[in-house]
Design a protein around this nucleic acid. Structure first.
Lengths: 203, 203
DNA sequence: CGTTATACCGTACGAGTGACTTGTAAAAGC
DNA sequence: GCTTTTACAAGTCACTCGTACGGTATAACG
């Protein structure tokens, strides 16, 4: 057989080309020829690594989610010393917002997939399967905060966690639409966090 | 000239056909021929009322926004007696969520436009031009609540209003993705409203 | 050596796209 | 009653789409 090729690496390169297009022209504006051209390869080569467009789309979605996950994880681990639960939550939420080029591209691609997911059960399952895990992580941080006396125990609930996640999603939407500036989005996030964590000693 | 035709009415019929397709297959899955077939008319007739696809899309967006606006307005006016600001806000926020067929269709169509708006400056301007007005209405209700002693005056701000709107948007997204059930979404909304309006007599 | 599986490239197909043009019927205005 | 304008239908245009397929070069394996 000819030169040994790292299929996974090739696929990642193609996925990145797809993101570049999807984040500027949308997913439906990303034809196979466009992706191939953006990746600097031939259409035939692209088809060699992804037999169908759906396969390419599915791979690219899973990969970009994994990257976002890793990015946020890194930021949390980069926090100095022993971060408070509130700091961890804030870092995580900010990581979910489209504030720099990478996360903005991720959010744009995510938005493009979102519309497809609404009508596609498989994609919908893929898109939402990480949410419960994220919610549990948030709830855990809230509990930790309650244990440290930084949060009323009655507020360390799954509902409060989902409220935070839902808010981050809404803020992301309005950031992409340029309804909010980055400063506004951060201010709104901190406003909610402030209300959540206020009244520490009550109850 | 032949029979006098109500152009506006024809356009509304076509727009409704577009929504039906966009809410099930997405906006990019709505070709002119599909819309014409769904509306039960010929392609030629559709093109007689909308010279370009963009014109059709723009009309349909403006129209569905107007319908949603009217729907929420009606619900607020249907409240018994003199509703409290909190009741008005809650009614308005619930009206923004995809909880019944009509509002779900509206949200699906809105989501389809959202992806386009991210990449299209004109559409983006159209999509976000109603937000400041909505925010002002919300802020006004918050001020009214503060005057009535139902809300700490420090919380009657534009930021709190935008927080509510952003949250409604996030909840809508997760409702469409079926991450939240309707009950969960309402519970989360009331949770946030509860936190906002609590501690009425302070300050 | 030859065989064979792999890694491509180029091209072509059939279906579908939006925009445009032509054709036709009908009714309002002079 | 003839003209003109409107309301459609049907067909055509050039183009893009995802997919399929034939061909060729390469290098590991027997």
């Amino acid at each position: 057989m000819p030169k040994k090729v790292d299929h996974e690496a090739r696929r990642r390169e193609i996925a990145q080309a797809l993101w570049r297009i999807a984040s500027t022209r949308g997913l439906d504006g990303a034809g196979l020829r466009d992706v191939a051209a953006e990746a600097g390869i031939s259409l035939g080569r692209l088809q060699h690594y992804f037999r169908t467009k759906d396969a390419m789309l599915a791979f690219a979605l899973r990969h970009i989610n994994a990257l976002a996950d890793r990015r946020i994880r890194d930021r949390i681990e980069a926090l100095d010393g022993e971060p408070t639960p509130r700091e961890v939550l804030r870092t995580c939420l900010i990581g979910m917002l489209p504030l720099d080029d990478r996360s903005r591209t991720g959010a744009l691609v995510g938005a493009a997939y979102f519309v497809r997911a609404v009508h596609d059960a498989d994609l919908r399952a893929e898109a939402k399967n990480g949410i419960p895990h994220l919610r549990d992580f948030f709830t855990g941080q809230l509990r930790r905060a309650a244990d440290r006396g930084e949060l009323p125990p009655a507020r360390a609930t799954d509902d409060e966690a989902m409220l935070l996640i839902s808010l981050a999603d809404g803020l992301s939407t309005y950031l992409l639409l340029e309804v909010h500036t980055q400063e506004q989005a951060l201010r709104l996030l901190d406003l909610h966090l402030g209300q959540l964590f206020e009244g520490e000693a009550r109850e």
